[in-house]
């Protein structure tokens, strides 16, 4: 065996464990979902090929349409806010709180990330309770009447967005914080010598240098947001009405409540396409900016 072949074989062996995992839990399920999406399949009996019927139905299903609208609203609300907040907090902690208190603050802000969705959902249900909930009690002190947070269509989705932002900010904050700490200090020193203000330093040095991090944060945020399920399922069950149903909830219901695995797979494939398209657009945006620079 030549040296080149030996090295290639070694490389294959090294990546084999990861490859097996990715194939078993990502690639093969995606291919199978793609196949099932063209079938009528109830899990217990063999799938029957029905062509594009599932896809045709998906677009006519009012539940899916409502779920897609809600998911989109959720993405539009959560991704920019959580990105902005995590960057702001990270910058504040990096520039103004390089001490023990800052460390403690970072740890505290990370707690929601490690809390399970069940715990977070349950706690927030209590906080957002209309009668006697913590938030309404606080509003009461300020002489503001109680808000039907989870029981009204106008506030239910926003309430879930708030909880999601609360849960995600800590995670992205840590990523941004690490990114900020990795920016060479001499850049700031040079800027200060040139008379740049703190704000100018932030917008002219920090933000551009954090572009790869922002790309990661936005990408992860988008993917997670499109996959929203647990908080909505736990806090409102998709209600009131269809105010908080989401695409993944639709997939879950079709698969596990209606036993329509083929239909659920068709929805899943569409979601996959949406996420890929949005990521491609995002990629283009970040690439263009990079080139322009």
């Amino acid at each position: 065996m030549t040296r080149k072949k030996k090295e290639a074989l070694q490389g294959i062996i090294y990546i084999l464990p990861s490859l097996i995992l990715i194939l078993s839990f990502c690639i093969i399920p995606i291919i199978m979902s793609g196949y099932f999406s063209f079938t009528s399949y109830n899990i217990m009996t063999p799938p029957k090929f029905i062509g594009l019927e599932n896809y045709a139905k998906v677009f006519k299903d009012s539940y899916v349409v409502d779920a897609a609208k809600n998911t989109l609203k959720y993405v539009v609300i959560t991704v920019p806010i959580q990105t902005f907040l995590s960057l702001t907090f990270a910058a504040f902690l990096a520039y103004k709180m390089q001490n023990k208190a800052g460390g403690a603050m970072r740890s505290i802000m990370f707690i929601p990330v490690i809390a399970s969705a069940v715990t977070a959902g349950t706690i927030w249900r209590i906080i957002l309770n209309t009668d006697g909930g913590l938030l309404n009690n606080i509003l009461g002190v300020l002489h503001i009447g109680p808000v039907n947070w989870l029981g009204s269509t106008s506030t239910a989705l926003i309430s879930i967005c708030i909880v999601a932002i609360w849960k995600n900010v800590g995670y992205f904050l840590v990523i941004y914080y690490a990114g900020i700490m990795g920016i060479p200090k001499d850049l700031y020193e040079a800027a200060r010598v040139d008379g740049a203000t703190t704000l100018q330093q932030f917008f002219r040095i920090t933000l551009p240098m954090l572009k790869p991090i922002t790309y990661l944060v936005v990408t992860l945020g988008l993917i997670w947001s499109f996959q929203v399920f647990d908080l909505s399922y736990l806090m409102t069950g998709g209600g009131p009405g269809r105010a908080t149903v989401t695409l993944v909830m639709g997939i879950y219901n079709a698969a596990f409540k209606q036993y329509k695995m083929g239909y659920a797979c068709a929805m899943a494939m569409l979601l996959l396409v949406i996420v890929i398209v949005i990521n491609a657009v995002e990629n283009l945006f970040f690439k263009e900016k990079k080139e322009a620079r």
């Binding site: 539940y63 029981g151 009204s152 269509t153 998709g238 209600g239 009131p240 009405g241 269809r242 149903v245 219901n253 409540k257 209606q258």
Partner: peptide, 22 residues
Amino acid sequence: KGASSMYDTLYKNLQSMMLGQM
């Protein structure tokens, strides 16, 4: 057939009614 999903659909629609939307 589809009892669970029918109940879920009805329940959500009734919720909407209680909110004055249906």
